[in-house]
Design a protein around this nucleic acid. Structure first.
Lengths: 121, 121
DNA sequence: GGTAGTACGGACATTCTTGTCAGCATGAAG
DNA sequence: CTTCATGCTGACAAGAATGTCCGTACTACC
């Protein structure tokens, strides 16, 4: 288990989820994998703004945390497939919820809170 | 709107949610505020591992993104209250879901995926 | 005078993460 | 021979975020 996850377990469950899913592009990767098994090159094309070094790192962390399964085929050219584990699949409602929330947030640009004064400062 | 949020809007809705909620302790702060209005010192005590500089920064960002409302009372000693906006309240199911998921993850330590070989490497 | 309470913000140091670049391995095709 | 495809990894640079420290403001109390 990775150190940030170990540390988060001492804090609270929300921080555990954050430590597992908080890396750059991780939720986007999970979202794409919810659609089915993908190869590395496919994921790179699905997330064009990410550099491959970062994608590799994040996929390895997701694998280490048990979110996905990485299958290496003994062939040339190399063939590697990534698929969500059952634990990874359990993230579907969360990813859907964040997708919907993000879409709603983006569509209401400029609405919402701000500082309200109870009197003069 | 903060630049990371602007950038995420060009990418996809999941990345929007990540950019708004991805900062250190942000989800934990939202979780505590779901329980009702809090003052700064209360939040510091509820998140003991965080330093106050970071908490201030994150609260300001959440305010800027419309997730919370900061109410300043014109008195000495200073009195400032933080409460979720309606937009912030809309995060309740997500925070609950992550809390539940993180708790389940922590309780199944060591279970889940890994690399499965289709043959020799 | 000093200390306490409250809620910060500026400045800089430190830490961590991402980004860039170069390289590896192998068979197939030209 | 070279080029292509695939999926990386090591090393270092660059960027971003957090952490530390000091200071502000004011009243009340010792």
């Amino acid at each position: 288990m990775r150190l940030p996850v170990q540390r988060a377990i001492e804090v609270c469950p929300v921080e555990v989820a954050v430590s597992v899913l908080g890396g750059t592009w991780k939720l986007t990767l999970v979202k794409h994998l919810l659609g089915g098994t993908r190869r590395f090159g496919e994921l790179c094309r699905l997330v064009p703004l990410a550099n491959t070094r970062t994608l590799t790192r994040q996929l390895r962390e997701l694998e280490e945390d048990g979110i996905l399964v990485r299958t290496v085929y003994p062939q040339v050219p190399p063939k590697v497939e990534y698929a969500l584990s059952p634990l990874g699949e359990s993230l579907a409602p969360l990813v859907d919820g964040m997708d919907a929330w993000g879409a709603a947030f983006a569509s209401r640009l400029g609405d919402g809170g701000g500082t309200r004064r109870a009197g003069r400062t």
